[in-house]
């Protein structure tokens, strides 16, 4: 049995230490908001926060994160600026890519609280959204940045 910290709670799993974190979260712990799409770090849909950093859980292995704090989309509060902005701007289409993209956006905003369009282009250029929600993702990131200022102040 291995213990893992997910969304502020300790959870025990019976899995091989070499299992990708993606499958531990989905198969063993039922966090199906963490999506499988490519399995090779190409799409960003399996993104989770590991100690606050957006990382692709399909290429992170269980034994690498035993000491870490893992956050899935459920771990962000409902009034998190990214969640509020995503709803306000009506971003998701199919929605399958969004939890991963939102977590990557949350990490990005924590490092770049007031991003320009060009910075958003660079930071979000390595994720896939086949539905084409990009224009709204960009608007929502700007809005989330403004909301974060309000919440913080």
């Amino acid at each position: 049995m291995i213990t893992l910290n997910v969304n502020g709670k300790k959870r025990t799993v019976d899995a091989d230490p070499g299992t990708p974190l993606l499958w531990v979260l989905r198969d063993n712990l039922g966090f199906t908001s963490v999506k499988y799409t490519c399995g090779i770090s190409e799409c960003g849909m399996c993104t989770v926060l590991i100690d606050g950093d957006a990382q692709r859980s399909c290429i992170v292995y269980l034994d690498e994160v035993l000491e870490s704090e893992i956050t899935t989309i459920e771990g962000l509060p409902e009034d998190h600026p990214v969640k509020v902005a995503w709803i306000e701007k009506q971003v998701p289409q199919c929605g399958y890519c969004q939890p991963g993209i939102m977590l990557q956006a949350a990490d990005f905003l924590s490092r770049e609280p007031n991003p320009t369009d060009v910075q958003i282009d660079e930071a979000m250029d390595n994720v896939i959204c086949r539905c084409g929600s990009h224009p709204r993702i960009k608007k929502a990131i700007h809005l989330a940045a403004r909301l974060a200022v309000k919440q913080g102040g």
Partner: peptide, 9 residues
Amino acid sequence: DIQDKAMGK
């Protein structure tokens, strides 16, 4: 359907 999608539900 957007609320649930944004919450990962």
